[in-house]
């Protein structure tokens, strides 16, 4: 505990950087025009494949569009899918997980066998199978990555429910004759939220990568939509002449995901410390 402020800062440089970066990306998603005066779709034939410079910090692509502007505008889709699909998956996971935890043993164990099988696969593979069923498209990509994220939340929600249902206050509420549904909603669910929040924070990152991967494969939004995965796949064919078109969108995806993971891990450690 020596050094006061500097000592406090030293242990938290990574965390502070991560939070700052997430704030910046969120700002890009909400108000991209703050960051760049340019139009993400505007082509400029006099500025084709320009390397990074002052006017175009991330360079330009084969039609003269500013890569920085496209990356900034891409944040809204990626972050929207990341947060939206994670939130939806969290809600479904809580409902199914809580019900499984409260259900008779037979139903619970059958449901959990299914969840375990799904959890053996990486989310990306499940999302890919979901796209095989749903068909390609930007909305279906969001749905697919959401579906892929659900099993993990079910497992945690169920495990927490099993712990909480035996606690004194749930017993007390039952004893007072509170309706089972009200017990679940008012007493059980709120107490399962902290561990779920931790994995959901990390999950936002996983979801962003999975969605960008599906878009990269051409299964999501189509050109000229500025989407991070799509920007990368557009840059694939230009790698020989213009590395920057594919490089910078990837840097931003990686930084966003690393930040979400750092924040999530920190939350987990804080939660463990308190428990």
């Amino acid at each position: 505990m020596s050094g006061g402020l500097t000592g406090w800062l030293r242990g938290r440089v990574g965390l502070i950087a991560a939070v700052l970066l997430l704030v910046v990306v969120a700002a890009m998603a909400v108000a991209p025009w703050i960051f760049t005066p340019l139009d993400p779709l505007a082509t400029d034939t006099s500025q084709v494949l320009q390397p990074p410079a002052w006017g175009h910090p991330f360079g330009t692509d084969q039609t003269g569009r500013d890569v920085f502007t496209r990356v900034v505008y891409g944040a809204s889709y990626s972050l929207g899918v990341g947060v939206g699909a994670t939130a939806a998956a969290l809600v479904v996971g809580i409902i199914v997980g809580t019900l499984a935890g409260l259900a008779p043993r037979v139903i619970d164990s059958v449901a959990m066998r299914g969840v375990e099988i799904l959890l053996a696969f990486p989310e990306f593979l499940i999302a890919l199978f979901a796209i095989a069923v749903l068909g390609p498209g930007p909305v279906n990509v969001a749905t697919a990555v959401g579906v892929a994220a659900v099993p993990a939340y079910i497992r945690v929600a169920r495990a927490e429910t099993l712990v909480v249902r035996r606690s004194g206050y749930v017993e007390a509420a039952r004893g007072l004759g509170v309706h089972p549904l009200r017990v679940a909603v008012a007493h059980i669910v709120p107490n399962t939220l902290r561990p779920l929040g931790v994995i959901a924070t990390i999950g936002i990152g996983t979801t962003i990568v999975a969605a960008a991967g599906l878009s990269f494969l051409g299964l999501g939004p189509q050109d000229p939509t500025p989407e991070w995965g799509l920007l990368l796949s557009g840059g694939r064919n230009l790698l020989g002449q213009a590395w920057w078109v594919a490089f910078f969108p990837g840097v931003l995806i990686t930084l966003t995901v690393v930040s979400a993971t750092v924040v999530g891990r920190r939350l987990r450690r804080a939660g463990e410390g308190r428990a």
Partner: peptide, 8 residues
């Protein structure tokens, strides 16, 4: 390595 998208 874990956080970077594999395609990138």
């Amino acid at each position: 390595a874990i956080s970077s998208p594999p395609f990138w």
